[in-house]
Design a protein around this nucleic acid. Structure first.
Lengths: 334, 334
DNA sequence: ATGAAAGCGCTAACAC
DNA sequence: GTGTTAGCGCTTTCAT
């Protein structure tokens, strides 16, 4: 009630309880035996003062925080928000906190954030990097802080990575389209130069090649993974080329592409078949229900979080790569 | 290259540069004049040691962190993730970090998180509370840390609140339905007892009353704001009642309800009209395109963040409430 | 079963 | 223009 602004310290608690700060600390942390009666007195004193330990001081002394940092390229992308869900839930169970930040797909901004996080702020780092090569960010990553790369794998990364079997996933999808006798299959790919985009293009190309279909570079479009570019690229494709099917390599661009076709009376799948990437609740109620490649996004987030925690507890743990399988969900858009 | 594990301290930098720690600190923070040459030497030393200041130590000394905590009831809900987008972007611009956590719509878990955040971890708190009354969480909220409530306003909150004109929003939507000559208008409401739910029910009831339509309690269903309950409640409504239209008070439940109807061959809007809450990219490509009440979620997040920052800079600033208007987006589901 | 005190790495008041 | 040093609030070693 009275001194609201004054932060309560352990010292005050100790005074009130008639003990030393050491004892107070030990009753709080259960780190050594304290007799029932002193324990009692300390607890009462804490209650009375409405005392909460100062985490900053504790962190400084213990040389660790309980915070994990996550750097994502686009928080408006449903895939990345489901990653967050998975990460947050397992982190919380283990008593860690989650610091989230958004790099806007910019390596420069990513580096800025890595720097901040590394200033003893964060105990571990989960990052969906926008860098093509690990070398670009290597100088800023500290080797003593556990780091896991998620979704994307810059060339040369020596850390754990959690990703998806992109090439196989897309190969399957394109093969499906071919079997449905699509002839002119286009690809709307995401942000250029990142591993997921490259792998998805590889899957596309190799599926076509395996079925003796010419790969036309005019049918491969690179976007920026946002709604707008899906819309624009669909338009470009439809105006310039005869296309009977499109594979769209991310969820926001898929929505963009479909929006374009709906606005222009292009029928899906009659006029053009579509397969998208990422599966969400709303993908079932679209017109038509969307055929997609589903990645286990929440699971990937959970894995990243538990991996980071393992790394924190067992620093000598060797690094490894986890490639999750995807699932081709065929609905009505192809 | 060598002592990777050893944290570099200011002291070492000072030694290498042949200055005091004070000078190092001042060149880092620009807090007092330092001659060009010493500045030079210090910077070189920092470079050489690959030094980054220790935030934890700085925070302890300055008695502040640069972190804002956000507590949300459901990170899988698109509304809350767009809130995060808005919050994160404006926070980042101002040099703050964002600590995110999820309360699962549980007051107990919310309290747990408030406690953690309050331990000098966080400079400000943005919270979408699950509490019906402020009294439930009051003991844990510290008055000296700036707090803003977002989306929901527990009874008796003395802090800033950022919300939406729920009653008016729903009143308009229901009125629209009535003008479209709907007679049996049902309501699928969200988590009981929170302000948004109560206000939305009020809007529903008062629109019906103003048009001399009987309010039947069997037409008002309470869910838990998740996909599943939207699905189940739609089923319940459709099996038990003759209903020609439904207003669904949140985005996940809307998807759930539509999914149920699609699975069961119920035509929208021919058999039943639907208006949902919250607007997203995918709402345009659903079958049929969804009529919804759109709330300016990103804007609300931005406002919350800038408000918190204002409060931090001007603690004496008086509290106020911000009620954003919504927009009724009529598409094809009603 | 408990206490004293050093010290985590920084900032800033004070001194010159 | 720069240095010295106290101290932020805690944990933990070393005593007893």
């Amino acid at each position: 009630m009275d001194d609201v602004k004054m932060s309560k310290t352990m010292k005050k608690v100790a005074q009130l309880a008639g003990t030393s700060t050491a004892t107070v600390s030990h009753v709080i942390n259960g780190t050594r035996f304290v007799s029932e009666e002193t324990k009692q007195r300390v607890q009462e004193a804490m209650e009375k003062l409405d005392y909460t330990p100062n985490y900053t001081a504790r962190n400084l002394r213990r040389q660790k925080t309980n915070i994990i940092g996550v750097i994502l390229p686009d928080i408006s992308n449903y895939f990345f928000t489901s990653l967050i869900q998975g990460i947050e839930s397992t982190l919380r169970k283990e008593g860690y906190q989650l610091l989230v930040s958004n790099s806007d797909e910019l390596v420069s901004s990513e580096i800025e954030q890595i720097k901040t996080f590394n200033a003893q702020l964060v105990q571990g780092l989960i990052i969906a990097s926008s860098a093509e090569n690990y070398a670009e960010i290597k100088p800023y990553i500290k080797y003593d802080i556990p780091t896991v790369f998620i979704d994307r794998k810059p060339k040369g990364v020596p850390h754990d990575v959690i990703a998806v079997k992109n090439k196989i996933a897309v190969y399957e999808a394109i093969t499906y389209l071919i079997q449905k006798s699509c002839k002119k299959i286009a690809l709307i790919a995401g942000t250029p130069n990142i591993s997921t985009t490259k792998e998805r293009i590889e899957g596309y190309v190799s599926a076509l090649e395996d079925h003796d279909i010419d790969v036309k570079s005019s049918l491969i479009k690179n976007g920026d993974s946002k709604f707008k570019s899906g819309y624009l690229l669909a338009k470009e494709l439809y105006e310039q080329e005869i296309v009977d099917s499109i594979f769209v390599a991310n969820n926001l661009m898929t929505i963009g592409a479909i929006t374009y076709f709906k606005e222009n009376g292009v029928k899906i799948p009659e006029d053009v078949s579509i397969i998208g990437f990422d599966d969400y609740e709303w993908a079932i109620i679209t017109d038509p229900p969307l055929s997609v490649i589903k990645q286990p996004s929440k699971l990937m987030g959970e894995k990243a979080a538990s991996l980071i925690i393992e790394k924190i507890n067992t620093p000598e743990k060797e690094t490894s790569n986890y490639y999750f399988p995807t699932e081709l969900m065929i609905r009505k858009s192809c």
